[in-house]
């Protein structure tokens, strides 16, 4: 899932300065699950903003199931219509969804969208995927060197491994150590002898923003016949 973290209150306060009517909009899916932008967080943040900003600002609160679907965003149309700005507690996709659906209102990000990852333990989330567009997890024992190696190396660790940890982000294990251990455990360590060639990164974001089109799922009802 997408993992995000709320921005510091001071930064949010600067962002909403000058608006008299604000809608704080939460998201019921990813940001709820990582405790950054769900209903409770919306309530807490709104309370904090009211106490800091006082009479300057009128704050309304709402939550939608997901901010990345037009139909869900449509449900808060009236509330958006009343606001000058919407402080989104969804991921960056949600903030942009609001902006595209309601171009007349100012869409503000209340969160920093961090990464795609999983819940390692309650309260601890770790990055696992960088959407490189050309998954090679079958070659690395199910552990991603693109996302979990700081240098995204593809054929083994660099020389900076220290006690199994990455020299760049010392709290993180070295991905290649993990890969080696996993493959050994599975009795498939000779797979490491296959060299993963230099990648074409066009499928990743380096090639530009991506889009997927499935012609077989095109809307048929809306076509003019």
């Amino acid at each position: 899932m997408i993992v995000a973290q709320q921005k510091p209150l001071e930064e949010i306060r600067q962002m909403v300065r000058g608006f008299r009517r604000l809608l704080v909009l939460g998201c019921g899916t990813c940001t709820t699950v990582c405790f950054a932008g769900g209903e409770k967080e919306v309530g807490l943040l709104s309370t904090s903003l009211r106490s800091v900003l006082g009479q300057e600002i009128e704050i309304e609160e709402a939550v939608v199931q997901r901010q990345c679907e037009w139909e869900f965003l449509d449900q808060v149309g009236e509330a958006v219509g009343r606001a000058e700005a919407v402080l989104s507690l969804g991921c960056g996709v949600g903030v942009q969804g609001i902006g595209e659906r309601y171009p007349g209102v100012v869409a503000l990000p209340g969160l920093n969208t961090a990464f795609m990852g999983l819940t390692e333990a309650p309260g601890i989330w770790g990055e696992r995927c960088m959407a490189c567009g050309d998954c090679l997890l079958h070659r690395t024992g199910g552990i991603c060197p693109v996302a979990r190696c700081a240098k995204s190396l593809l054929n083994g660790p660099c020389g900076g491994v220290q006690d199994g940890h990455c020299e760049i982000s010392v709290d993180n294990p070295c991905a290649w150590v993990l890969i080696y251990d996993r493959l050994t455990q599975q009795g498939r360590v000779e797979q490491l002898e296959e060299i993963i060639p230099a990648r074409d990164w066009k499928a990743s974001h380096s090639g530009g923003p991506r889009r997927i089109v499935r012609p077989d799922l095109r809307d048929m009802v809306g076509e003019e016949v």
Binding site: G28, V64, Q65, R66, E69, E71, F72, Q75, D219, M220, V221
Partner: peptide, 19 residues
């Protein structure tokens, strides 16, 4: 909750009750 049924229904017969 992918909303596919809502989108493909030709008769506007599927809604989300406030999500």
């Amino acid at each position: 909750f992918c909303l596919t049924c809502l989108r493909v229904c030709p008769h506007q017969a599927v809604t989300t009750a406030m999500g």
